[in-house]
Amino acid sequence: MNLRENALEILKETSRTFYIPICRLPSELLEAVASAYLCMRAIDEIEDHPTLNNLTKAKLLRHISLNLQSSDENSGVDDFTYGLAGEQYLLPEVTLRLGEWCLLAPESIAPRIWDATAAMADRMAYWSQNNWHIRTHEDLDSYTFSVAGAVGLLLSDLWAWHNNTQTNRMHAIGFGRGLQSVNILRNHREDQARGVNFFPQGWDNQTMQAYARRNLHLADCYTKSLPPGPALDFCQIPLALAYGTLNVMALGQEKLTRSDVLALVERATSGFGWNSEAV
């Protein structure tokens, strides 16, 4: 099994939501997006690790950031994970293989992915060290940009790199923020159980729902601005699932059922799109 095939297997294990649209991308773009997703997933596993303390998380994330910032065309797999050996028995496979994901990307776009991953690792280190303490709307905007809005920008740059075009970068940020805020709503109880609350002071589920929908509206604008092709195909599935999740949560369900997911994916991939009222 070559690196690309193995990367898709790991992707399937870590996110079925993104595995489906990534597999549908043309070859070179697939490698770039898979590389970006797995790099981000690698550092996200550190931020979300259940047993590492926050200072250790911050230290590891900053170490990875420095590794990425010092990398070039001569860097090998081990150069990207230098300094992680002390925690290797605690970290998952997707994190320990960060170097492979970094080298999966085509050379012409790989440095942009490394830069985005390094910046996100530094931001995650900040939030880990501060125990994800969110007090205000501005704090929430900062956090959702750190871990998702910036991903929207990176994806926008990958589409532009592949098609030699430009997209609306502010709407791309909304795409990432919208998906992340839906995740915050879906995981709210679990986060509270581990002592973390991503809701600003005074916010309830209804307020966070409104925040999510405002950003998903920007995601709608972003997606509708994309021409027919792989970028549009990629964005439709997670956006449809985000809307579907908000809708079932508004009805009192915690998450989408498997049949809901299959129906939404079928609708998004068959040319019917989605709407914010129907699951």
Rank of each mutant, 00 (worst) to 15 (best):
L25Y: 07
A85P: 00
M170Q: 14
V77Y: 10
A172D: 04
E28S: 15
V94W: 01
A268T: 05
G271D: 06
L66V: 02
M124I: 02
I113K: 03
I134F: 02
N275W: 07
E9M: 09
M124W: 00
G271Y: 00
T51Y: 12
R214V: 08
S15M: 04
A36R: 01
T257K: 12
Y126S: 02
F198W: 12
E266Y: 12
L90R: 11
W161G: 08
G202K: 05
Y243K: 08
G76L: 10
P200E: 04
M120K: 03
A193V: 01
N275K: 05
A85N: 13
R97P: 00
R41T: 12
L8S: 08
A212E: 10
P92W: 05
L155Y: 14
A268H: 02
I109L: 03
L179K: 04
G83M: 09
L153V: 15
A219H: 06
E254T: 15
S259Q: 12
W161L: 08
G252V: 09
L30K: 15
M170D: 14
L251Q: 15
N67Q: 11
L8Y: 05
R214G: 00
L91A: 08
A121T: 08
R112M: 14
P92F: 08
A150K: 11
L98V: 08
A219E: 04
Y89A: 15
L52K: 09
D48I: 07
L68P: 03
E254Q: 15
R214P: 00
V33H: 02
R194P: 00
F198E: 01
I113C: 05
F198C: 02
A278C: 09
E107A: 15
S225E: 14
W132C: 12
D115S: 13
S156W: 07
I64V: 15
L216K: 06
T245I: 03
K57A: 06
Y143L: 08
R123C: 09
C235Y: 06
F18L: 04
S75V: 02
G195A: 07
L216T: 10
S181I: 15
V33Q: 04
F234G: 03
V196C: 11
I184P: 02
L179P: 04
S27K: 14
I20M: 11
A160D: 11
Y243Q: 06
L3M: 11
I22Q: 03
T136Q: 05
D233G: 09
L179H: 03
L251C: 07
A7W: 00
S71K: 00
L232D: 00
N130T: 14
P228D: 15
K59H: 14
L256T: 07
V196Q: 12
R267E: 12
G83K: 09
A148G: 08
N183K: 08
W161V: 03
Q209D: 12
E45K: 08
A219I: 04
L103I: 05
P21E: 05
G174M: 07
I184M: 05
